[in-house]
């Protein structure tokens, strides 16, 4: 059931940074951590839909640029006292190429 689609070279995404992936239905934020892990989550903060892709990345967390909620990149969940969750998508890196699986989102949310 994997539907891996290549979206970028690893180096297209800055370390501790992100790129936005536009699909027909939504924007997905694709993050790269300091140790080159790649995470993809829907580019919408559970608080007030802030664009998470524009936040500062630290560890495997991003701080939303609008009101500073901290969102865990692996689970899409807000950390600390805040509550809320955004969708996540499976990713993998092979030979410096980044793939995303859109189908995995349903499981990731569950």
């Amino acid at each position: 059931m994997s539907d891996w689609t290549e979206i970028a070279q690893l180096d297209d995404i800055p370390k501790l940074g992100s790129r936005v992936l536009k699909t027909d239905t939504m924007s997905i934020a694709v993050f790269r951590t300091a140790d080159d892990q790649i995470f993809a989550i829907k580019d919408e903060c559970p608080h007030k839909q802030g664009p998470l892709s524009q936040g500062i990345v630290h560890g495997s967390t991003v701080t939303c640029p609008l009101h500073n909620w901290k969102i865990d990149l692996a689970s899409g969940e807000a950390q600390g006292p805040d509550e809320g969750c955004t969708n996540t998508f499976a990713t993998k890196v092979e030979d410096g190429r980044v793939f995303i699986s859109m189908a995995a989102s349903a499981e990731a949310v569950a």
Binding site: E6, I13, R19, L21, K22
Partner: peptide, 11 residues
């Protein structure tokens, strides 16, 4: 430039 362009799903 990467800051101002988005990725797309390659088909």
């Amino acid at each position: 430039a990467h800051e101002f362009t988005s990725l797309t799903l390659a088909n």
